[in-house]
C-alpha cells in the first residue's frame, strides 16, 4: 500500500533521511521508533503530503505522491503532536468543518458515529478549549478517521497524555477500526508500541535499520536494539 524508495530529506546542510526504503502492506500496523531527531516526524510529514522530499519517491497504492498529492490526501488520516483542532469551536463544529473539507457524505451521521467511537458523546457541543488533553487527543483521532481513510498515520499519539489516557489509547484505536486500516505509528514508548503494532521498525542514520515482525521478536531484543540506538 505504501512504498518508499530512496527517500532523502535535507534541511539545509543537515540530512535527516538518507535513501530510506520502506514497504508497508495493506492492513499492517507498523510501529516506528527512533531517537529524537532521527526523522520519524519528517517521514510522517512526507507520507502525509505536509512535507516534500528532497529526493526519492513515495507511492501510495501505486500513485506517486509528488504527482497526485491532493488526490491522495483523501486516503490519509493524520494524528500528530498537535490536535489540528480549533479551540474556540465545539467538537461538533470542528468535525463539521473537516467533514466539509473532505466532502464526507451524510456528515451529521458520520460525526455522531466517530464521536461515539472515541467516547465523547455528550460533550460534542462544548468548546474544545474546555477539554482535557486526553479528550482533545480523542477528538484529534475522531478528526483523523472522519473521512474513513484506509491509511492512518499516528505521530506519537500518546504525547501529553497521562498514564491512564495513554493506556486507553490501544482500546481507542481498536474502537476506530485500526485493524482494517494500514497504520504507521511513531512512538517512544516501547511497550505500547510493541503491544499495538504487528511490525516494528527502528530508524537509524536516516534509514530503516531494524525491521522485524512482532511475533518474531521478544520485547527484550527490541529494547536492546532501541537503547543502543538511543545511546549513539
Amino acid at each position: 500500500m505504501i512504498k518508499v524508495r530512496k527517500l532523502v530529506k535535507a534541511f539545509g546542510s543537515r540530512i535527516v533521511l538518507r535513501g530510506l526504503n520502506l514497504d508497508i502492506a495493506p492492513g499492517e500496523f507498523i510501529t516506528l521508533m527512533g531517537a529524537n531527531g532521527a526523522g520519524k516526524t519528517t517521514l510522517m510529514n512526507i507520507i502525509s503530503t505536509l512535507g516534500k522530499a528532497t529526493a526519492g519517491q513515495v507511492m501510495i497504492s501505486g500513485i506517486d505522491l509528488s504527482e497526485s498529492a491532493a488526490h491522495i490526501r483523501r486516503y490519509i488520516g493524520l494524528v500528530s503532536h498537535k490536535t489540528l483542532l480549533y479551540d474556540d469551536l465545539s467538537a461538533e463544529q470542528n468535525l463539521r468543518f473537516y467533514a466539509k473539507m473532505y466532502d464526507v457524505p451524510q456528515p451529521q451521521a458520520r460525526i455522531e458515529t466517530v464521536v461515539q467511537q472515541v467516547g465523547l458523546w455528550g460533550r460534542q457541543k462544548d468548546p474544545v478549549r474546555t477539554y482535557s488533553r486526553g479528550m482533545q487527543q480523542r477528538l484529534a483521532i475522531a478528526r483523523a478517521i472522519l473521512h474513513n481513510p484506509p491509511i492512518l498515520l499516528l505521530d506519537e499519539p500518546d504525547t501529553g497524555l497521562d498514564q491512564y489516557a495513554a493506556d486507553m489509547l490501544g482500546d481507542l484505536l481498536a474502537a476506530v477500526d485500526t485493524g482494517k486500516r494500514t497504520v504507521l505509528m511513531t512512538s517512544h514508548n516501547l511497550e505500547r508500541g510493541l503491544s499495538l503494532g504487528n511490525r516494528v521498525l527502528i530508524l537509524m542514520n536516516g534509514k530503516i535499520g531494524y525491521d522485524v515482525r512482532r511475533e518474531d521478536v521478544s520485547i527484550e531484543e527490541v529494547r536492546q536494539v532501541y537503547f543502543e540506538q538511543l545511546k549513539r
Binding site: 495493506p26 473532505y102 464526507v104 484506509p150 482494517k180 494500514t182
Partner: peptide
Amino acid sequence: MKPETQNLKPETQN
C-alpha cells in the same frame, strides 16, 4: 485510485 484495503474506502468516494 482504488485503495488496496478491501473493506475501507474513503467516505468521499460515495
